[in-house]
Amino acid sequence: MFDLTGKCALVTGASGGIGGEIAKALHAAGATVGLSGTRVEPLEALATELGDRAHVLPCNLSDPEAVDALPKQAAEAMGSVDILVNNAGITRDQIFMRMSDDEWQSVLDVNLTSTMRLCRGVMRPMMKARWGRIINISSIVGATGNPGQANYAASKAGMVGLTKSMAYEVASRGITANAVAPGFIATAMTDKLTDDQKGKINAQIPAARMGAPEEIAAAVLYLASPEAAYVTGTTLHVNGGMAML
């Protein structure tokens, strides 16, 4: 089950907690992985850890030209891009009434527009190959909203609409497009929270704990696999029951 031998996967935000685990899971299943992100050091460290079949592909996702060039660079490094995981994302939280144009635009640019550009860049070879997997990492807040995150929530909801529309268009060509919507996941960011803060968060989660990055990676691995060929246009919520959608 879930054998990705011979497949090549491009993962954005691979320097982060969730992206790194996604890359590891796909790699462990036999895929060649392209590790993209802005910070080169952690990408190099991850590539070293993974050994063979790992390529470092730095990219600044707020630079449209760099984003447009990434699919080609990835295909040159790996031979193809069969699996695209749009995981990179930023937050610039602010209550809506105070939200500046820049806070809005920068989050939309990185989270939504770069996702669109990368999807567009990989679509043509996937169409020719009659096989492709696009997995966009959305968020629970794209479905539920969250105070202080109008920009982030809009970008994550936008990813779901984008995913569904693409899924319609290319389903007959063997390409699936799906979203994964994590709830609260324990990463370096949540480690900084106090026990009291963590307790309050956990009280909202039926599973009574935060998720692990590995649990997001497992969802991505499934959607990337040949076994998930009949699953497209869906959003797989991985949130410990925090929102049952």
Binding site: R124, M127, K128, E169, V170, S172, R173
Partner: peptide, 9 residues
């Protein structure tokens, strides 16, 4: 419409 894109390709 997708066929026409593929024809062009």
């Amino acid at each position: 419409s997708l066929d026409t894109v593929e024809l062009v390709m």
